[in-house]
Design a protein around this nucleic acid. Structure first.
Lengths: 190, 190
DNA sequence: GTCTATATTTTGATAGAC
DNA sequence: GTCTATCAAAATATAGAC
């Protein structure tokens, strides 16, 4: 008989891990069964839209988690340096120092449907904007702040790829250490 | 009657495009048929090991192409600045200004078999080393040169991810423009 | 070396009991 | 709300003609 062992939130956590590890097509229903401990029909019960709905839900869930853990601290009190450091610490945890890839990076591969592409674009755009806002607060001109924010997200995504490729956490951890100072470095010319 | 329309090289070119676009699992045999214009058995005739062998062969092929187009120019004559600029121009072409992803980034997803993981690690390591060598030639201390080379590869990979996510070539093109100067900037402290 | 055709396994998705 | 069992479609791979 029915035993609701897991909340939908918990299921989403487990699905997220699976999609990050295997990618959209590599994460077969069988893989998702193993990852969650649920049978396929339980998954279809939670997500009647099938795998497509699971992907969309997991993206939403991951975006919310990312906001809660890494982005909201950017908007709280404290110096820009302090807030950026808090974000980097959260990212180091979120991505397990580069051992786990970014869901956005993983799911933007292939030929994503329009909805997924929109979710991805929105997530990345929002991230860049929040970062730019903090950098600007520290006295960096608006346009330059926005460039640096974009470069930061690029570096983070790249570090995840390279860390995975080299099988080493070194690249990612070094970036997390340097990033706050790099982003706030005074401009030579405005 | 047999008509060998395509050389194995040409087939590998077409397979490479397909794997970059669809990823390892998204590139089904049907997709590869369409991409190459060959039927499945012709593909299995060329690659008796099936899809696994195709992936490995495509990685080798892409690494060779990458070396020929972007990395060999790094080792030829000319100033470091000139050679780095040549690489960036080649990369802009190779990745279609960020519209096409990196095969290494795509295939390092999922749980790659040992062989594939080794190919990926070797490709990225080699790239970083060649870059570091050029930067060092320009007078940057060895250790710092190696760091910058790694950061360059990180930025390139990250720019590919972000360009795809934002649906814009802007990030990648800007990086290709800045990279040569950034890499050769004099050190403040050795 | 390429084709048509088919075998086999896996995948995404449902049916129906409890 | 979870299970066992199953389906239809798609995936990987093979057989055999030419």
């Amino acid at each position: 008989m029915g035993h609701p062992h897991l909340s939908k939130e918990q299921v989403l956590d487990l699905l997220t891990i699976a999609f990050r590890r295997h990618g959209k097509d590599g994460a077969t229903i069988a893989v998702l069964e193993t990852a969650t401990g649920l049978r396929r029909n339980s998954l279809y019960h939670l997500f009647p839209g099938g795998k497509g709905e699971m992907v969309a839900a997991v993206l939403d869930h991951a975006a919310a988690l990312m906001y809660e853990r890494a982005l909201k601290p950017l908007q709280e009190s404290g110096s820009p340096k302090y807030r950026l450091t808090a974000m980097c610490r959260a990212l180091d945890d979120f991505y397990c120092s580069g051992r786990e890839p970014c869901l956005v990076g993983v799911l933007s591969l292939g030929v994503p449907e329009d909805l997924v592409q929109q979710q991805i674009t929105r997530a990345v755009t929002g991230w860049i904007e929040m970062l730019a806002s903090v950098i600007e607060e520290a006295g960096i001109p608006s346009r330059r702040a926005r460039e640096r924010a974009e470069e930061a997200v690029i570096a983070i995504q790249g570090a995840l790829v390279v860390s995975k490729a080299l099988g080493s956490e070194h690249a990612f951890k070094r970036l997390m250490k340097r990033l706050p100072d790099d982003l706030l470095q005074p401009c030579i010319a405005g």
